[in-house]
Design a protein around this nucleic acid. Structure first.
Lengths: 358, 358
DNA sequence: CTGAAAGCGCTTACAG
DNA sequence: CTGAAAGCGCTTACAG
């Protein structure tokens, strides 16, 4: 150590010198502690703590030929247009240390072709693998990644070759089925459904969410009418208005998303129905919309999904082989005022923030 | 090259061999092209392209003693609870390549003390600097970073020592002044204001947004009443109801945020006023709320802010010295149906998605 | 159990 | 203008 620079971060050599051992011994203490004599172990560890030593990621990566990082394209995440994307990114970030990786988000200004962005990240050895989200039919990324043998895992099923890849997704059918049961338990009678059309290509999500409602409500004999609309508030309000026509106070609506649920709230309000006492409404996603408007919602298990994807990537990285596997993970229903029959006023348009959720 | 591995990424040696020069020449071609004879330059560049060579970030970082990365804590970003945080992260990510850096988000499970997370990132040489957001009075991070001489830049003024640090923020006063002028141009008469209380510590934001309205509306002689509420939809709706009491059709309200503006929409709707024709409403932030509900909003210049912060960090990294400087950046008003007097129906509760914004 | 050597992929002086 | 050398901070065989 030529000069004691305040900015200088301790290296393995500093620790070795301080503990009077060779630097290889320090490495062993960190990576193969069973090889080191207890006294030595203790002494070295003390110096590590005292100096605040942490191995340099760059040096480790150089040696291991691994970046220890997972790339995630923000354009794709954002395209969802929902605040859920941000929560997912946060869950990935929180989970990452458990898998000994960090995340590297990347993006491109509009026109840059997607695959080239991925390629560049790999060529610069910035990342070892990718998390994909918002995959769609005809998406060039999975095929390219498979071909190039770059590990990846996707949030959402890969429709082109689900059997070839690692993915995780919310169990949409379970979610809407839970919603039906919740409404039944709360004493609502008929349960209608407002969802997205399933005639489009990547509509497996729409299909699953619809199916859970359909099966559960049919089983209970409480299935009400169903309607579809785009993921758009105005369209949802319009569709909800038609959907409410044949309903009566005491009935309820399960929705494919929180945004659609907000449309139902508006339509109900316009008819003078109190959401909660007169009409039960359940959304889906656990978005900020739900907490803001007091909606009961089916929360996506984002933490579980994040962990499943990073776990899948880790397996591919260490096992070498692709370990194709898909997982549907259980969502959790979070009750809110929109399914509270005993509330005296109901939700006029807005409802109190629930203090239990931020 | 022992064996031709398909996964193997080209290194500088591969390029040198292919171009029949030494590896140092390749490095010169990339970093100091003026030192290299034109023919050689050309030949080497061709091989670089052909092999898809990109320098390894880890190796470069090792050599330069620099990670080439900027850390950003996601907990803090998320704490804002607004979807603006995500847009900001995306803008940072988009801007990063222009400053030759990438981002590394990090987070901690609830209780982990904030500063230690930052320390760990630096010790592992994962990042050279940080972008801070959601700074507040008593925030331990700026002081610690200054003391430890770790470069950083903050989204939002640092109230404790604004002169010591690099920050950028939206010019809130300009934003609400723009809103007042916009309303005037659209023919609205009195302009009321719904904002946050400024009596709290970190209320410079509240103060600035209020001041822009106050100054501009006073200058025009159109200042209407003002009210305050928390950043909460229910509270905003309640406060808006009181605020509307003395107003008349043809008046308008400028709000400190899009969420508050939504509260005004609700209150207006409850009174049977048509938002747009009867009452002008302007929000602030350019959040998803605004686009979803057809609100005219003052959009935060997130791309400019992101660039200013990364530029400030780059200066600190290269210049060595701290270059304290704060910048207020101009927001842009984006008109929506909520200030369209000529609309025949007005915004009932929801308004059509504006196709020009996603 | 511990130490000396090699090498991951770069770049920056330093000779030729 | 180009090449041989040194070294950034690690870890993994390989000797002792």
């Amino acid at each position: 150590m030529r000069r004691e620079d305040a900015h200088r971060r301790a290296t393995i050599n500093d620790v070795a010198r301080a503990a009077a051992v060779s630097r290889q011994t320090v490495s062993n203490v960190l990576n193969k502690p069973h090889l080191v004599r207890p006294e030595t172990l203790e002494r070295v560890r003390q110096e590590v703590d005292r100096l605040g030593y942490r191995p340099s990621q760059a040096a480790q990566g150089m040696r291991s030929q691994r970046a220890g990082a997972v790339g995630i394209e923000l354009n794709a995440v954002q395209r969802a247009g929902s605040d859920v994307a941000q929560l997912f990114l946060t869950e990935l970030t929180v989970a990452a240390p458990r898998f000994d990786v960090h995340l590297v988000p990347f993006a491109h200004e509009s026109t840059f072709p997607a695959v080239e962005g991925y390629q560049d990240m790999v060529r610069r050895r910035l990342v070892d693998a990718f998390v994909l989200s918002d995959t769609h039919v005809g998406d060039p990324r999975p095929e390219w990644l498979l071909q190039t043998r770059i590990p990846f895992a996707a949030f959402g099923r890969l429709y082109d070759q689900p059997e070839l890849t690692c993915w995780a997704d919310v169990d949409g059918a379970s979610g809407t089925a839970q919603a039906v049961e919740h409404l039944h338990a709360r004493g609502y009678r008929r349960v209608a459904y407002l969802g997205w059309p399933h005639d489009r290509p990547a509509s497996a999500v729409a299909e699953a969410r619809w199916e859970g409602w359909s099966t559960a409500a049919s089983a209970r004999g409480t299935a009400g009418p169903e309607g579809t609309c785009e993921q758009d508030l105005t369209d949802a309000t319009r569709a909800a208005d038609a959907l409410l026509e044949p309903l009566e106070p005491g009935d309820a609506v399960v929705c494919a998303s929180d945004l659609l649920a907000l449309g139902v709230v508006y339509a109900a309000y316009a008819r003078g129905w109190r959401v909660g006492p007169d009409l039960g409404v359940v959304g889906f996603d656990g978005s900020l919309i739900a907490s803001r408007h007091g909606l009961t919602t089916v929360e996506q298990p984002l933490a579980l999904i994040a962990a499943a994807l990073l776990g899948g990537i880790t397996d591919q990285l260490t096992g070498g082989a692709l370990t194709p596997s898909g997982q549907l993970l259980e969502p959790t229903l979070t009750p809110g005022p929109s399914t509270d029959r005993s509330a005296t006023t109901g939700i006029p348009i807005t409802a109190p923030e629930q203090s239990s959720r931020r």
